[in-house]
């Protein structure tokens, strides 16, 4: 029983740290808890903490609280935990298999290869071109965007708050492009815009909308606040450079 409680808690924690919606976290906890043989399962998830209470058939109640300190964007983990929990409740996966899979997911560190960041830079290129930049500006934005991703993921490995990461990324992108625009014929605004777009808090924005929709006011509002503060931080970073550069 102890071990099953740990499994349910771990699944919920993985979902929360990777930015899943609240209803998904609570639904997964309930599904896994019932499949594990508990008679009543209560889960309460917020973006910064997870509370579960599992009632065993013999009358014992197991309650656990888990504080969520760090979150990062990793949608593949959400998808995997989702299918593990479904397989577990179907009975097509044993407790040992679920344990091994969840342990593997929780140990899996984010693979930060240079290739990943270069592909991420293509997003910056696309954005500059969506807003009317030409190929050349797109490529400059893409390279700067890739460097921003390298910088932000490096900062992310140290205890640097998200807002400060975003501001630093904004300063870096604006400074690089401001410098380049002195020697190259590029539109500085369009190029900077593309390069900073790689830091868009897309996961926070979308889950905030979906949380509010399903009546999760607490996490909906706190995620909207996260998205807003990151956006303002990026803008502040860019604004600092533009002011110093005399715009």
């Amino acid at each position: 029983m102890e071990r099953l409680v740990g499994l349910v808690l771990l699944a919920g924690e993985l979902l929360l740290t990777c930015g899943a919606e609240m209803y998904r976290v609570e639904e997964t906890i309930e599904r896994m808890g019932l499949a594990a043989g508990f008679v009543q399962v209560e889960g309460f998830a917020t973006p910064t903490g997870l509370f579960i209470s599992l009632h065993a058939p013999n009358g014992r109640v197991y309650t656990r609280v888990r504080r969520i300190r760090q979150t990062y964007n990793k949608l593949s983990t959400i998808a995997e935990v989702n299918s593990i929990s479904r397989a577990f409740s179907d009975g097509s996966m044993t407790i040992q298999e679920v344990h091994d899979e969840l342990e593997r997911l929780s140990k899996e560190t984010a693979p930060e290869s240079l290739g990943r960041q270069l592909i991420g830079g293509a997003g910056a290129m696309a954005f500059t071109m969506i807003f009317g930049g030409n190929w050349f500006e797109g490529i400059i934005a893409g390279m700067t965007g890739a460097m921003v991703l390298v910088l932000v993921s490096w900062l992310g490995r140290h205890p640097v708050p998200k807002v400060l990461q975003a501001a630093t990324g904004g300063i870096f992108a604006a400074a690089v492009i401001m410098g380049l625009s002195r020697i190259l014929a590029i539109h500085p605004d369009l190029t900077t815009l593309g390069a900073v777009m790689v830091m868009t808090p897309g996961v926070a924005m979308t889950t905030a909308i979906r949380d509010l929709l399903s009546g999760e006011l607490l996490s909906g509002l706190s995620r909207s606040a996260e998205a807003l503060s990151v956006t303002v931080a990026i803008a502040t970073g860019v604004a600092i450079v533009l002011t110093l550069g005399g715009r």
Binding site: N73, L75, A79, R116, G120, A122, M125, A126, G202, V203
Partner: peptide, 15 residues
Amino acid sequence: GFIGATAFAYIYRVP
């Protein structure tokens, strides 16, 4: 649009 969405999917580590 395809490149942009795919690249962002990559950043957010979509399977």
